[in-house]
Design a protein around this nucleic acid. Sequence first.
RNA 1: GGGGUGGUAGUUAAGUUGGUUAUAACGCCGGCCUGUCACGCCGGAGGCCGCGGGUUCGAGUCCCGUCCACCCCGCCA
Length: 622
Amino acid sequence: MKRTHHCAQLRASDEGKTVVLFGWVSSYRDHGGCVFIDLRDREGVTQLVFDPELAGHGDQPRATHDLARALRSEWVVAVQGVVKGRGANKNSRLPTGEIEVHGFELFVFNKSETPPFEIADSIDTSEEKRLQYRYLDLRRAPLQRTLRVRHRIHQITRRYFDDNGFLELETPVMVKYTPGGARNFLVPSRMNAGKFYALAESPQLFKQLYMVAGFDKYFQIVKCFRDEDLRLDRQPEFTQIDVEMSFVNQDDVFRVMEGLVFGIWKEVLGVDLKELYPSGRFPQMPFDESMAKYGNDKPDVRFDLPHVDITRVVVDHGGGGVPFWKTIADKLSAGDAHRDAVTDIVKALRVPAELAGKMSRAEIEKLEEFVKGMGAKGLARAKVDAEGNWVQSPLAKMITPELRLAINARVEARDGDLVLFQFGRESVVQTVMANLRIHLAKKLGLIPDSGHGGKWKFLWVVNPPLFEYDDERKTWVAAHHAFTRPHDDCIDRLEKDPGKVLCWRYDLVLNGFEIGGGSIRLHDPAVQAKVFRTLGISDEDARSKFGFLLDALKYGAPPHGGIAIGMDRLSMLLSGSESLRDVIPFPKTQRGTDLMTDAPNVVSPEQLAELKIRVVEPPAGA
RNA sequence: GGGGUGGUAGUUAAGUUGGUUAUAACGCCGGCCUGUCACGCCGGAGGCCGCGGGUUCGAGUCCCGUCCACCCCGCCA
């Protein structure tokens, strides 16, 4: 038998045809007389009927009917039959619902054990079980759809870049370890005992070498590997749309990527982003503004609830009678509030009365548990009444009326508003407040718990600082990487005031997720030397770490820059999936294991001996 | 490394103050049923209560440890 149609293909116009379908038994309903089978393949479902009285095929239908009664879920079968209209019995929920196939010949390719969960659109099964039987999970329609979306994105991406003169070029996966950035997975070299390759965390250096080599416009859909702890939106191996261009500025990069994203949304979702962004451009927000208003560099601007930094007001009032705030005020007014020291800040978040009214006092108190889980010591709060008094607030008794009114004015508090405060170490305050803002938005129904909720808020976050101060090591470190080009008007600050040096780095943010990031690269050896000096990297250090790139940049490197888009996150947001694991065919658990194959695993002593590797602490149970 | 949630039948869950034989739904097996499409009806099987220890006359339930999954912080230039 040769397949003639797939399971989503037949319509009323096919009535009378003799067809052959292949597929999986999705469900069976045995009525003693007729047996109904829903036959499923990757395209859809068609109802089969096995009627012992089917005319015109001799005794065959009776034998086939007996065989059909034995069919069970997920058996793989071939059926030959006649397409018949269903008349009044049609099923409007199925695209093929107006017909059914009356089978007179049936062949079982393979039986199936009873699957551990139903192969249905919506199942109530733990993710653990789904990952263990991933090949069955992938048989379900939602995952089939998601992987098709990924396929479409791949095809659109390749066509887009090809049309725009980009070359798809490969880079090595097994590379030399370079320090800094994400932790690498290491691969031992059998032929060079005691030495290791690193799995590339990104093709960064190689794509820059392509620019030096004159390829001008490069792209690649490429796997990257990072040995860091996992999250909802982080897997140890993931896919990037990696791009690099010569002779471009930041805006050129933005235009290219905006074109790609508009194209993907149009073709995959049928959404015309021009209706939301008529200029064809995504808005841009300075890094500093993002940190001030949202506490991180990937703001979800589908809703408002901005933070207000009230550090200045608190300092001006000497802490306003609040002991913790006085400590901060004393410290900052003493003049050590530089970026090169641990800084304390005070932030407020005003929940407008109409939203605050939705939360009970108990719910508001539960917020404190939430922030404590993130390292906060507590959550100061105040309800503001019509006279501007603070009620239900531990601060109310201590705070001076002057500071209270100054804060009310600063956060524009009105009757019934709830104001939440965080103060202390800047990094903690920012993290806590950023997460609190999202948490509140979900609790208050401003955004759904997961998914886009029909809103697409894109944003370029631009002009971040080139350096960050590392409190523990007491040194400046590169915020992105050491080859990011600083703004020209910042170059004289490289040595005097490194914290104030802004650079040509950018992140593309969608609904609170960083879906891509990149930079214009530093190709001027003189400026590069100054950057290394600020980072405390000696000439010898630089040579041993990045020698091949520094050498390459000496041989006529064009100005260049690029970006990488997280394919998995893009797919996740586009498909409204709850986690990266739903858009990656074979994902890892939070501990980086594969529940299906049981990777990673121990290897034999012989394999280790060949690699000259001795395991110091054998894993438990090994 | 830290904080939180969960783990009971194939699956998802309930399980009271520690007390007789650990429930239910779906699934599975057998039987009946000619129009179902969440088919229906009758009957049946199915348990290492994650694992180890402790308290107790007695532990799914209380205590300690541990493993696994998920969410978050740290980490991820």
